[in-house]
Design a protein around this nucleic acid. Structure first.
Lengths: 232, 232
DNA sequence: CCGCTGAACAATGTATACAATCGAATTGAC
DNA sequence: GTCAATTCGATTGTATACATTGTTCAGCGG
């Protein structure tokens, strides 16, 4: 029925054949919502989803339930489901959360990461190219970014933190997938990532925390501004 | 179907009649799991729950789904559900999380709380008596504690943080409800609470954060020790 | 006596039928 | 012409029947 709460980077990575029906539907709908295939505030009808996915309502409802628990769909009794709206207010809350959690996660990682984990982070720190206008390159950029943050939070050895961080990152990247507030240049995130790995490698707890805080704040203001300009 | 994620203190507070069927079942099962009526690792059969609650499997499954998303029940395909086990390892993760989030929540509250909110916190800061051996008095103590932390996180003006903090507090208090690692004396938590309110009232961000960090660490070590002694 | 295999059983997974409720549209009155 | 009320339709809420799968226990063979 359920169990792990895969983030977008994990959904696209794993082969979808083995999991249960509600699992796959959940993953598919999550992918479509976060990537923009299903647009914010788009009305979702159970029957439509059933026909589209060729299953009955039961597993669809189960998937929608799980998405509702993560606030990726909004539910109103007898009125159906809405894909989660984009709101600058909610995004501000998200920025608070990421700033609080991820900076401390970096600090924990500086204490707990093994040499192997640090090496893996180093390898994942460099972001791929972005070709403005080519959507695929941006998707790859977002996936690489999510993967770096995934490695980092796993090095903090705390599955609860992992769930919170990756779920927040999913929602964080949604505006970008919709073309709102995209970064233009891969070099700045790459540089921050390497600085973070430097600090962790040096076991410098304070620096890891500080640099991560700057990294999180970095992109957020631009995205919030773009969200407000776009009328959210 | 779903929507808010009520913590234990909210479940016992609200009158249960108005909500939808799955909502009430969810709340009831959550209450039973957290309060120990349903014991850790107890096997839950859908059919039993249906007969016990006099409803069909559909709303029961929906409730179990939501509980699974919060890791209050564990699910194995075709094998049924288990009430979440007590694990000292998981409790350690919980302590990490609470330490990270709640200390920063206190800092945010010191910036954002209104005078009315501070007054309400002051009133809620004093904990009720504990009579060892009388379970009711301890339940009231836990509820009062949860209520104080609820007021605090609401003053931080961030619904995502509220969800995380209250959910963590629910799980945090579960060992206590089962009689594991209970505090013996109300005065120490009361004193910490008042110190936190003092710091917030003085808008002293650093002190609020520091005192809250000590408050969170305070009880945790004793509980973890007790958990290990009890074989979890 | 221990271990393996297979079949029966029990529990969950899925689909569908029926009930309840909300919303929208149409019709009527003012 | 506009507003309100009632009725009809569509969509979700719940229940139940059927399919699938995992488990367990009995019987057989080593």
């Amino acid at each position: 029925m359920m169990q792990p709460k895969p983030s977008l980077v994990e959904i696209t990575a794993e082969n979808p054949e083995k999991k249960s029906l509600p699992e796959r539907i959940y993953a598919e709908l999550k992918r479509q919502i976060l990537s923009g295939t299903i647009k914010p505030e788009q009305h979702l009808r159970e029957k439509d989803l059933c026909e589209q996915l060729q299953v009955s309502r039961t597993p669809v409802r189960e998937a929608l339930n799980r998405l509702g628990n993560e606030d990726l769909v909004v539910f109103r009794p007898h009125c159906g489901y809405l894909a989660a709206p984009l709101s600058s207010e909610r995004f501000r809350e998200l920025q608070d959360l990421r700033l609080i959690v991820e900076s401390k996660v970096a600090a924990l990682a500086a204490v707990r990461a093994t040499d192997e984990e640090i090496a893996a982070m180093r390898q994942a720190a460099t972001m791929p190219e972005i070709n403005p206008g080519e959507d695929d390159s941006f998707v790859r950029f977002c996936q690489a970014n999510a993967y770096f943050h995934l490695l980092l939070v796993r090095a903090s050895r705390n599955s609860m933190l992992e769930g919170i961080v990756m779920s927040a990152l999913d929602v964080y990247q949604r505006p970008a997938y919709l073309g709102i507030g995209r970064v233009q240049d891969r070099t700045k995130p790459s540089r921050r990532h390497h600085e973070i790995v430097d600090a962790i490698e040096a076991r410098d707890v304070i620096k890891a925390e500080t640099v991560m805080a700057h990294h999180v704040i970095g992109g957020s203001e631009r995205i919030i501004k773009s969200l407000i300009e776009a009328g959210h």
